[in-house]
Amino acid sequence: MKSTLLERLKIHMNERYGHLPWFRRYEFLVPGLIITFLLSLVILPEQGRPENVMSFAAVLLIFMLFFGLAILIITDREKPVFLKRISSLLIILLFFVFFYQFSGTQWDRVRYQFLNVEKLEGVWPLYLNGLLVTLKLSAISAAAAMAIGLILGILRSLHNPVLELILSAYIDFFRAMPLIVNMVIVFYALPFLGINLNAFWSAATSLILMNSAYQAEIFRSGIESIPKRQVEAARSLGLRPMQAMRLVILPQAVRVIIPPLSNNLVSLVKDTAVAYVITVPELLTKARHAVVWKRNPTPIIISMFIYLATLLPLTRYTRFLENRSKRWVKR
């Protein structure tokens, strides 16, 4: 009875997978996986950096064997998708496990230095205040930069020689100037010209100057991507130039504009961290305060996660907008 079951399984496997080469068949992959696993129990060295060439070779061999099996599964068109996903996930996990085990890093010290939860006591209000300033600075700068960038982009798309000269000078200048220099100049040098801006508004001004220059180019390229015939059709109906821009060109250009614009907005939010140099109490400044106060760099690492958590919804939302703006495109 037992032998007939095995035979039936064998026949079934041959019918179902007989056309595959031997190294892609489950009869090879499953025993291969088991043998590699047993082998790893025998030859892998102790935790810590491998002491001699042989133990290093053993680590490398085991990893390469698992990696090879995963590759055999992932590159096969006929394997089910969930199997491929699981094997790619496992091999990445395995890499980190091996790194943790055999890199010789002193994880206790790493944890104490960079992920020390005890040192976070009492710093959360700091983060909250900092985050609010960062968000306010980002929102104001982004809104103003987009408004100015749009106007400059439209003006630039007119190809008026005089405007062209002025605008390209503005755009080239502020795109080339490092943001940190820009902020220092606005904050420390402008008061000598009688323009006194506090730290927050200096940072906002610099961010607006730089990002409006970037965005002007984004808007211009979006506008210019729409064929001239569309303008002609709109104008022949009696629409005025700005109506044609608002009703016909910009709604179509949005599709082209959104991906680079969302890129720019993400870097704008991160660039608010530069305001640290002119003492704006934003997220990074507060994190640095916490570092000094707690004598531990953990707060900086945590601020990274806060930036990530802030920006993830933004990128998700722009992706949603991008898909929505494509609904009239034939697929």
Binding site: A233, L237, G238, V248
Partner: peptide, 28 residues
């Protein structure tokens, strides 16, 4: 623009506004 409202124009490659549906094209 006043004169153009009195003159309709039809182009070789239609030049409909792709982001608007048919009735929106007509009513724009």
């Amino acid at each position: 623009n006043k004169i153009r409202t009195e003159i309709g124009m039809v182009f070789q490659d239609y030049n409909l506004f792709p982001h608007l549906n048919v009735i929106q094209n007509v009513t724009l």
